[in-house]
């Protein structure tokens, strides 16, 4: 083996250990709750806590709503900008990058000032209003990721020509968006959605400052109060995020017809005739 290959191997191993050693250490520590033996006691204890499931489901629901909001905003905007106003694309790109530049704490304080109890639109006075602010905040945080993945999806799709092809065949705007554009953006939307989910699922700053019963603040609270459970929770949330990434890969690489042969056949007039 050449020297250069050994050097690169060593570099890769060092880099990998930087991530893997803490992960392994956390996992090992999470198994040591009962003295002198390995056990999943910490995990049992986590699942036994009613707050665990309630914060988990609260965060799951808010994340899903955030995905819905950001998709509904980003897909039509990106489509329209690419089709009709390509010149404003840099502006839109810049706006979607803002959540990466402005710290979440600044955004949430801005929201509190704008929508506080003495404002014109006092969202913070009710629980529903505050929930709304939280999901809007999450949608904001996810903008850079959702926009980029949808925009990339549209780039590979050549939406202009597809739109014109559909128009020449007599389709109106809504038919084009729902029958041609959206189905072909499925992979891009799903990967944007999983990124949004993994960001907002364990988010702390927004949830904590808005005082919402979310998973992020719960994690921090447990971290202060307990010894072994935080390690178990960290491993669990890592597994969840990792599962999101795997799903994203699967959806991103799926080709039409590979996973939905049957559904494709059901829409196919010739196939129907043959099976009848």
């Amino acid at each position: 083996m050449k020297i250069s290959r050994i050097v690169s191997l060593v570099i890769v191993l060092i880099a990998a250990s930087y991530f893997l050693v803490p992960l392994y250490a956390t996992f090992q520590f999470s198994l040591q709750m009962l003295r002198g033996q390995w056990s999943f006691q910490a995990y049992r204890s986590v699942f036994a806590d009613p707050n665990f499931l309630s914060t988990l489901s609260y965060s799951a629901v808010t994340s899903l709503v955030a995905i819905l909001i950001s998709t509904l905003i980003v897909v039509p905007t990106t489509y329209w900008v690419r089709l009709k106003m390509p010149r404003v694309k840099p502006v839109v790109e810049f706006i979607t990058l803002l959540p990466l530049i402005i710290p979440p704490i600044v955004i949430v304080f801005g929201y509190l000032r704008l929508y506080g109890s003495d404002s014109l639109l006092p969202l913070t006075v009710s629980s529903a209003g505050t929930n709304l602010m939280l999901v809007i905040g999450y949608a904001t945080l996810s903008l850079p990721y959702v926009f980029r993945s949808v925009d990339n999806g549209m780039q590979t799709l050549d939406i202009r020509t597809l739109t014109e092809a559909a128009e020449s065949l007599g389709a109106n705007r809504s038919t084009i968006i729902f029958r041609v554009i959206l189905p072909n953006l499925r992979a891009a939307i799903v990967s944007g959605a999983f990124l949004t989910f993994s960001i907002s699922f364990g988010e702390f700053v927004f949830a904590s400052l808005l005082n919402r019963p979310a998973f992020g603040p719960y994690l921090v609270q447990i971290g202060q109060d307990r010894a072994y459970e935080p390690a178990a929770l960290a491993v669990l949330s890592f597994a969840l995020t990792w599962a999101c990434m795997v799903l994203m890969q699967i959806f991103a690489n799926a080709k039409p017809g590979a996973s939905r042969r049957r559904r494709g056949a059901a829409f196919n007039p010739l196939a129907r005739r043959k099976t009848a």
């Binding site: 799709l157 050549d158 020509t161 597809l162 014109e164 092809a165 559909a166 128009e167 020449s168 065949l169 007599g170 389709a171 109106n172 041609v180 189905p183 072909n184 499925r186 039409p256 017809g257 494709g264 829409f267 196919n268």
Partner: peptide
Amino acid sequence: PNRRRIGMVFQAYALFPNMT
């Protein structure tokens, strides 16, 4: 365009990738 009853073929084919 969708009311003109024209058929168009493009250089880049422009078939809908999600359809057979």
